[in-house]
């Protein structure tokens, strides 16, 4: 075993890691935003809003992520006649896919708040959307923080899927170096360690938040 290959290629590897983080962070921010709207749609009293939201969520949750990525990779150029950069293709697929998962987390968060809080807010003259934004969502976010952090870890692990369409995220960079240097054991051990540290930290954070729910105000 010779771990100097890692040190020799650290810049290239870190570039890949940054790309993975970038994809994860963009995905989380965008899909969580969309998820809030879908989740509100899921609890709407109007069927014309509730049903489409439910269909969106269930359709995406019943497909594997890799298939969604392929869909966007092959179909977007077919429909638009243009090819998007890999990063954009993957990002769109990820946002759509994870929006469905985040939406379910946000929905259960919203439902944990209870309709009497909405009634109280409405009774003071706030509109329904103000009640959602000012009263329900802040409480829902607090209740669902552990589940959100756990899902963020899953998003980060999911970034490896971008490998299949050739995006140079961390795992892809690692494998390129492994092939070039013929040192697969050292490199994949290193990759495993990096994912372990990141995901372990995230999981511990989720556990901590779960135990200290009342801390977050």
């Amino acid at each position: 075993m010779d771990f100097s290959v890692i040190n020799d290629n650290i810049e290239f590897l870190m570039l890949g890691l940054m790309r993975s983080f970038q994809l994860a962070i963009f995905t989380i921010v965008l899909s969580l935003t969309i998820a809030c709207f879908i989740a509100i749609g899921r609890v709407s009293s109007k069927r014309s809003i509730r049903y489409p939201s439910a269909i969106f969520v269930n359709l995406l949750r019943s497909n594997p992520l890799i298939l969604i990525v392929f869909w966007f990779f092959f179909l977007v150029p077919l429909i638009t006649g243009k090819t998007l950069p890999e990063f954009h293709t993957v990002l769109i697929a990820f946002v759509v896919f994870f929006a469905a998962y985040f939406a379910e987390i946000v929905r259960s968060g919203i439902q944990s708040v209870g309709s009497s809080q909405v009634k109280a807010a409405l009774s003071t003259g706030l509109t329904y959307s103000q009640s959602m934004r000012l009263i329900v969502l802040p409480q829902a976010l607090r209740n669902m923080l552990p589940a959100l952090v756990t899902e963020c870890v899953i998003v980060f692990q999911g970034t490896t899927i971008a490998y299949v369409i050739g995006m140079r995220e961390f795992l892809h960079s690692t494998s390129l170096v492994a092939e070039r240097t013929v040192r697969p054991v050292e490199l994949y051990l290193f990759a495993a360690l990096v994912y372990l540290v990141i995901c372990f930290t995230g999981t511990r954070l989720a556990l901590f938040l779960e135990k200290n729910k009342e801390l977050a105000r």
Partner: peptide
């Protein structure tokens, strides 16, 4: 909403906003 703002309501379980 405007009409409701002229009507105050008090609930059995208070329903203050905990956050």
């Amino acid at each position: 909403s405007k009409i409701r703002s002229n009507i105050g309501m008090v609930f059995q379980h208070f329903e203050l906003y905990p956050h």
